[in-house]
Structures are given as C-alpha cells and as structure tokens.
Computed example of a mutant assay.
Amino acid sequence: MTGEQTLFATLQRLQDAAVPCALVTVVRCETPTSARPGQKAVVTAEGIEAGWIGGGCAQPAVLRTVAEALEDGQPQLIRVSPRREQGAVEGLRDFHTGCASGGTLDLFVDPVLPAPALRVYGASPAARHLAVTAAGVGFAVQAVAPDTTAEAFAGAVRHADDWRAGEDWPAPRFAVVATQGRGDRPALEAALASGAERIGFIASRRKFARLREQLAERGHHAARLDAIKAPAGLDLGARTPEEIAITVLAELIAWRRGGAVDSGQAPAVPQPAATPGARAGASSAGCCGGG
C-alpha cells in the first residue's frame, strides 16, 4: 500500500469509527524543511495517525490548531516559522517556533468531522419517516426497534432488532424515542443509557410526566431525565406522522447547530458517571400524542 493509500485508508477508518480528525496539508515551504508542498497527514486530537508534514518543530502548532478546528469545525491556515512576521497576513495564523533548522511551513488544517449520530428508538410511522429525513440532512441514523428488519428504516446506517444497540456502534449525539406506546419505558431507559446529549420523546407532556416518575423510581438521576424533551419537535401544529417527523427534525437541526430556537425543555446536561441500566418491563399503555 502506498503512502497516499495508507493516508486515505486511515481517514476512512476514522470516519467509519466516527472519530473526528483533520487532514493537514503542506501548502508552502521555505527551506530548509523536511516537508514538501502537497504532503499530507491525518491528525486526531491524540496526534498524527498517518502521513508526514514535517519534523517535531511543527507538530505542537499543528496539534494545537487541530484541537481547535475539531472543536469549532472551522479550517485554518497556519505558518510555523522561526521568524516573527512584521505584518499580519489576512487569513494566516502565525506560530513562532525556536526551531534551529530555520525553515518555514505553511499548512492548511481541514477538520473532517463525522456525521452526528442520531439513534431512533421505535418502529412507529414517525420513527421510519424520521430515519429517512434525518439521513437526508447529514445525520448518521441508528435504528433500534424490536422485531423489525433493516429494510423498514430507509436511510439508517445501523439497525438493531431489540432495544440494545451494537457494542461497536458510535455513541449517539441525539436520540429520539418514537415508540407510540410500544416499549416506551425500555426505549427511554435505553436512550438514557446511550449517552445522548439530548433525547426527544414523541409523546404528550402528561404521558411523559407519568413515565418520568417511573424512571425516577427506578433510580435514574434527575439531571439525566432533564435531557428528555417531550413532546419532541417544534410546535408547528403537525398532525400526520410525516409532519411530526419534520418538526422533530427541525428541532434536531436547531440542537445540532446550537440555534436559539425556543424548543421548550431539555437543555444539554452532563451525563452522570453512572446511569442505571434498563431493566425489562412492560411499557405504560396509551397512545403517544405528538402535541
């Protein structure tokens, strides 16, 4: 395997594992440097995974910039040089280094962020429509629904036919429970244990209030329960499963982008160190109203 093949195989492996990384490219050099224009490296928050972009003098600046780019998603152009520039160059961030070689490197740091994972629990019509529409706007959809097949969830990249997700699945950033009265409580417990930042529950406030009491009695932390928003979705007067799925997707986009849309409850909260595992049990009966 050539160096370029290794580079892009590494990039693909990290993407498949949902590991954020950056592709760093040498765009300009002033000799003496060990790197050459066009050379690339795949870099994670932990360090260089593959490729070559120069010696040790450049690496601290690269690692610092990669960490920032992975945080805000913005690419950066940086210069690593032993000389302090007299005037700032627009769009170029200057790093002064005490490297004895005397060379200068300009590098482009391009973050490669995985699609945010969305775990959808349930096989209701709204769940199936959400799987399709969310995949269409860049979410990596994981479908979790007992007694179903992957074919029922067009757009999903992963599927489980019970409430347990695969051990090798990337943790979801968000989760939506759309069970429509079939497995509400076990699905909510699975969503709580998943580590999702926010959880949408397609159900009425009254229904969730009752379930919240049950979940608290079963040992789930109040701070974690605050991550659940019910009813899920923006209040657009939706009635059909297709419309409800769209309102939930709109809210997910607002959560993803950090928008200022007032979507009610469920601010982002940290997950406690230990969350009780879901125990088997029948869900509460009743319809899951979307309003």
Rank of each mutant, 00 (worst) to 15 (best):
G281C: 10
A227P: 08
G259D: 15
G155F: 01
E242S: 15
T97F: 01
A274Q: 13
E46Q: 15
A193C: 14
V43W: 00
A156H: 00
I246A: 10
V42T: 10
L107E: 11
V269Y: 08
C99F: 00
Q74L: 14
R13H: 14
R84G: 10
E197L: 14
G47P: 01
E151W: 05
V109E: 07
G281I: 09
V177P: 00
L63T: 01
K40R: 14
D94F: 08
V157H: 03
G3N: 11
D168F: 07
R83W: 11
T6N: 15
R79S: 14
G291A: 02
A216G: 12
I53R: 08
V269H: 09
Q142S: 13
G102N: 11
A61E: 01
L11M: 09
R93K: 13
R36C: 08
A134N: 02
A123K: 13
S263W: 00
P125M: 08
A171Q: 15
L252R: 01
A22P: 09
R93H: 12
A127M: 09
T104F: 10
Q5H: 10
A254V: 06
L192Q: 10
E213I: 08
R28N: 13
D168M: 07
H159D: 05
R128S: 01
S81V: 02
T148Q: 07
V120H: 12
S101R: 05
G200K: 02
G138E: 05
V27H: 01
G47M: 03
H129T: 03
A232N: 01
P60I: 02
F8H: 06
A22E: 04
A123Q: 02
A238M: 06
A209L: 00
S194P: 12
A127K: 02
I53G: 05
H96G: 09
K229F: 00
T133I: 12
A131H: 11
P60L: 08
G122H: 03
P114A: 05
S194V: 08
A191L: 03
G87P: 11
G219M: 04
A9I: 07
I202S: 00
L249K: 02
D106H: 10
S34P: 12
L107A: 04
R224D: 15
R28K: 13
R84M: 14
W52H: 11
I78A: 05
E251G: 00
P111I: 07
G73A: 06
A9D: 12
R185I: 15
H159S: 09
D162Q: 07
I244C: 01
T2R: 05
Q12D: 14
E213R: 13
A131W: 04
V157Q: 10
A160W: 01
Q142L: 03
R13Q: 15
L7E: 06
G136I: 03
P267A: 05
A22Y: 05
A9V: 10
F108V: 11
G181D: 13
R64H: 15
A203H: 02
L215R: 07
Q5N: 12
A35C: 12
Q12T: 13
G166S: 03
L105M: 05
Q180S: 11
R218N: 12
T10M: 12
T133G: 06
T149V: 10
E213V: 14
Q142M: 03
A282D: 13
R173E: 10
R93T: 15
I199D: 00
S81G: 03
